[in-house]
Design a protein around this nucleic acid. Structure first.
Length: 206
DNA sequence: GTGCGGATGAACT
DNA sequence: GTTCATCCGCACT
């Protein structure tokens, strides 16, 4: 058994400020247990999607559909959706019920079940392409739409605090990726990552 | 019912 | 740097 780790609580997820939660998720460990196959990694990159006023969010303007209804759950559940018809993207729903905040997980540093992650990605050696990026990270962890709307307090997918030393790493805040369609909101500094980490999805010179 | 385009990644030139 | 795979959510007719 490795050193003490604790699953994040409802109280952690249900706070109001999604940007705070997005920052605090850095250094936490995301774990999946898919049919007994345990895989996971340290979160090194996140993006915040801030309620109905954020033009980059699926819930902008209060849009409530079969897909987006998961975002309106109380904080502490997963929001998984298919992007570009190819990739599943994993988000953490945060805040109170009926307030659609979410944090997109964009990069993880593999720690648990690395051999299984490699197999799912058809790779033989650990490289950043294993899990740097929201689509490939989901593939490595076995996340599909089957994991949409699952409680993060349950036993299939969760996030835990492993005492990662965040103070030893500089956190960068910058604009989000791939949201040019969001006009003025595209420039908001709601992407966060650990400077210099290999598993951040895009190189950045900040 | 139809049509457009996306919170991406990988294989190209 | 450019192209394209591949599908469904969503808005609109």
């Amino acid at each position: 058994m490795r050193s003490m780790s604790s699953k994040l609580s409802s109280e952690f997820y249900q706070r109001n400020h999604v940007t705070d939660i997005a920052k605090e998720l850095l250094g936490k460990q995301l774990v999946t247990n898919i049919n007994g196959e345990l895989t996971g990694g340290i979160i090194v990159e996140t993006e915040a999607y801030n309620g109905i006023t954020d033009r980059a969010s699926h819930a902008f303007g209060g849009r409530l559909t079969e897909r987006t209804k998961t975002m309106y759950e109380a904080g502490g559940v997963s929001y998984v959706y298919l992007c570009y018809g190819i990739h599943y993207l994993f988000n953490v729903v945060t805040g109170q019920k009926d307030i659609p905040h979410a944090v997109l997980i964009r990069g993880i540093e593999p720690t648990i079940g690395v051999d299984i992650m490699l197999e799912r990605r058809n790779m033989t050696t650990v490289k950043p392409t294993l899990s740097a990026g929201p689509g490939v990270l989901s593939k490595a962890l076995g996340i599909t739409k089957e994991l949409n709307a699952k409680s993060l307090l349950d036993e299939e997918i969760w996030i835990e605090d492993i005492g990662y030393d965040l103070a030893a790493h500089k956190m960068i805040e910058c604009e989000r990726i791939g949201v040019a369609y969001a006009k003025e909101d595209a420039l908001l500094p709601w992407r966060y990552y650990l400077k210099g980490n290999r598993f951040v999805s895009k190189p950045n010179n900040l």
